[in-house]
Design a binder for these strands. Sequence first.
DNA 1: CCTCCTATTGCAACTGGTTGCATTTGTATC
DNA 2: GATACAAATGCAACCAGTTGCAATAGGAGG
Lengths: 159, 159
Amino acid sequence: MRETEAKLVGELKGRGYRLTPQRELLLSVLEGSRKHLNAETLLERVHKVYPRANKSVVYRNLELLADLGLVSCVDFGHGRVEYEVHRHPHHHHLTCRHCGRMLEVRSGAFAQLQQQLHQDYGFNADMDHLAIFGLCQACSEKADPRHEHHPHALQGMGF
Amino acid sequence: MRETEAKLVGELKGRGYRLTPQRELLLSVLEGSRKHLNAETLLERVHKVYPRANKSVVYRNLELLADLGLVSCVDFGHGRVEYEVHRHPHHHHLTCRHCGRMLEVRSGAFAQLQQQLHQDYGFNADMDHLAIFGLCQACSEKADPRHEHHPHALQGMGF
DNA sequence: CCTCCTATTGCAACTGGTTGCATTTGTATC
DNA sequence: GATACAAATGCAACCAGTTGCAATAGGAGG
Ligand SMILES: [Mn+2]
Ligand SMILES: [Mn+2]
Ligand SMILES: [Zn+2]
Ligand SMILES: [Zn+2]
C-alpha cells in the first residue's frame, strides 16, 4: 500500500468517512502526476479505470481530500482550478501577470508573515500553496508597467 | 467632480479607453458603499439609474477598473467575488475558516514578505487586498482543529 | 453472508461568470 | 453638427463548478 493511501485510510477511519474506489483512484491519479491537474483532466484519467465516475464526485472528493490535507489546490486565473498531492515542505507559486512565467517558492519566506499575523492578531494563517501574482524580474525591468494595460493577459479572479 | 471620478477620467484618457455612463455609474455605486459588493448587487444598483445595463458589462468594467487600480476584488469563498473601491493604504482580510469572522489587516505586515520575494527572486508581488484563510484566536483555542472536519464551512476555491 | 443504516454516488438542473458577435455609441476630426 | 472608426455594449450561448435528490453501496454488527 502506497504511503499516501495509508494516510488516506487513516484520515478517513473513525470519522464516518468511507473508502470508495473513486476516492482511492482520484488520489492515485494525482499521485501519478508531477504537475498540477484540473478537474476535467482528473475526470478523464479516472474514467480510464472507472468509466461511470461523475464530475460532481470528482469535485466533492477533491474538496474532501483538500480538507484532509492530502491535496492542495490553487487558482492561477486560467479559468480552472488546479490540484496536486500535498507535498512537504509545502510551496507557493509566484505568477507573472505579464508573461505568465511561474516561480516556485519554498514556504520559508512566509513563516515570518505567519508569525506576525499570529502575534498581532492571534490569527493562525493557513498559507499552504498560495498563488501570488505580480511581475517577474524580466518584466519589471522591461518597461514601466503603470503605463500599460493588458486587458486579457489574465482572466478570472486573480487580478 | 468627485476625486475618484477625476482619477477615472485621467486613467482612461490617452489610452484609447472611453468614458461611458456604465463605467462612471459602476464606480460611483462602489464609491457609495462602505462594504464589499458582489456583481449581482452592483448590477441591481446600476439598474436603478440605467435599467438597460447588462451583467457582462458589469464584469468587463470591473475587470477594467481593477486593472486601472481603482477597484479591488476578492474571493472569500462565499460563491461570488466581491468588489470595493481601492483605498490607500490598502488592506488585506484574515478570514476564519471555522467561524467566518473577518479581521482587516493594514498592508504593513506584508511589506517584509514583499521585500524578501523581491530580494530572493526579483519578483515584484502585487499583494493588494488578499484574503488569507486560517483560524481566528477564539477558534484556535477552542479545540484541536486537526481532528475536526467542516465540509461545508466554506465552499469554493478557498480551502 | 445478511441486514441495516447512512455516506456517497450519478444525474440533471442550476449558478456565477465568460465569450463571440452583431449593434450601438464615444470621440476625434473636419 | 455631421462623418468615420474603433471601443464598448447587449445579448445569447457557453463553461466551470455546485446542489438537491433518488438510487447505490461501504462497512458495522450480528
Ligand atoms: Mn504547486
Ligand atoms: Mn477589503
Ligand atoms: Zn514576466
Ligand atoms: Zn473563528
